[in-house]
């Protein structure tokens, strides 16, 4: 379906935070790529490193204490990590833009929507103020805000949550970006509004042929919009495959745990299955597999050997000793 070459490639990304209490390995070896028009989901609990992966791509890791210590982020073939501040500024908001989780706090409360839209346009395009204004109007229209001409003059507090998220999307789309990173864009919204916003993402993607990175902890969102998905745990990808593979033949115990913890109406289950325990402290990760302390299928080896991401099927990668070649003989069906 997506035969073009990837527009964004992340290779072996390590983003660490150097704190007094120790080094926090927020992102610890992430690899993925994404092609134009494709949607990649990044799934994980809070603190799994998915937002920090996004911030690393944007070049917005607060430094100090944050630092990208290893890896490459190649956008259109060029490594973003070697760009100057100014070059990155010209990429942010123009080539790669971002929509954040909470539309209530992500817009500046003291500026009109118009100002917040046109400042992005003026920062990147050689438009006159009037051209920027008409572009802003066009964008509001595009994201489905009724009566856009009047709404341009409004302040964020005069919009509902869903409408604000539409404004955020309009800002992100202002310069027709090639990559859009959406960090939990529907988490703070009502369920009916969530569906509308996801629909809007799909529509915009079709029109602009953008690559979308959809960061979420909601597997429902993944099922809805993502072509491929990467599940993250403790800063590492643990499973990486096409979305329908994940739902049909998800392999990693953590992925399975996530799926079992979704309530369903049709299955008559007595009790929702939770994953026991809490995510590990990123400052002192266990020696073996990070998930081992919470894993139902934990083996002796898991406590000593950190598994590597292994291709188990076509384009289906899992980081688990259960599926590593060398160990596979020992595995009794779980």
């Amino acid at each position: 379906m997506h035969t073009e070459s990837p527009i964004l490639q992340v290779e072996n990304l390590h983003t660490h935070f150097i704190t007094k209490a120790g080094i926090v390995k927020a992102v610890d070896g992430v690899d993925f790529d994404i092609k134009p028009g494709e949607t990649l989901g990044i799934v994980g609990e809070s603190g799994s490193g998915k937002s920090m992966t996004a911030m690393s791509i944007m070049g917005l890791i607060p430094s100090p204490p944050g630092k990208i210590v290893e890896g490459e982020i190649r956008f259109k073939g060029e490594n973003l990590l070697t760009k100057t501040k100014k070059q990155m500024r010209n990429i942010r908001g123009k080539e790669i833009s971002m929509v954040f989780q909470d539309p209530m706090t992500s817009l500046n409360p003291v500026f009109t929507i118009e100002k917040q839209l046109i400042e992005t346009i003026l920062a990147h395009e050689s438009f006159s103020k009037n051209q920027a204004r008409s572009r802003a109007l066009e964008l509001l229209h595009l994201v489905g805000i009724p009566d856009p001409k009047k709404r341009l003059k409004n302040y964020p507090h005069e919009f509902s949550g869903g409408m604000r998220q539409r404004v955020m999307i309009a800002i992100a789309l202002a310069c027709n970006p090639s990559v859009l990173i959406a960090d939990e864009p529907t988490t703070a919204l009502d369920v009916t509004i969530q569906a509308q916003i996801l629909e809007l993402f799909k529509k915009m993607q079709n029109e602009l042929n953008m690559a979308i990175i959809m960061i979420t902890h909601d597997l429902g969102v993944v099922a809805e919009v993502c072509d491929r998905v990467m599940v993250m745990y403790a800063g590492k990808p643990v499973e990486y495959t096409e979305t329908n593979h994940l739902f049909d033949q998800g392999k990693h115990p953590y992925t399975l745990g996530l799926m079992n913890s979704i309530p369903t109406i049709n299955k008559q289950k007595k009790k929702l299955e939770a994953i026991d325990g809490v995510p590990p402290d990123l400052r002192s990760l266990p020696k073996g597999c990070s998930f081992a302390p919470r894993c139902k299928h934990v083996m002796e080896a898991c406590l000593h050997i950190d598994p590597t991401l292994t291709e188990v099927n076509d384009h289906h990668f899992v980081r688990c000793l259960l599926y590593e070649e060398t160990n596979s003989e020992k595995v009794v069906s779980p």
Partner: peptide, 26 residues
């Protein structure tokens, strides 16, 4: 520390502009 400052940075605005316009007015 507010989210809208992160948004302003993510838009690719100049740091000085973010500080003196977005942050200072608030």
């Amino acid at each position: 520390r507010q989210d809208y400052i992160r948004t302003a940075n993510a838009k690719g605005l100049r740091t000085r502009f973010v500080v003196f316009q977005h942050a200072l007015k608030n």
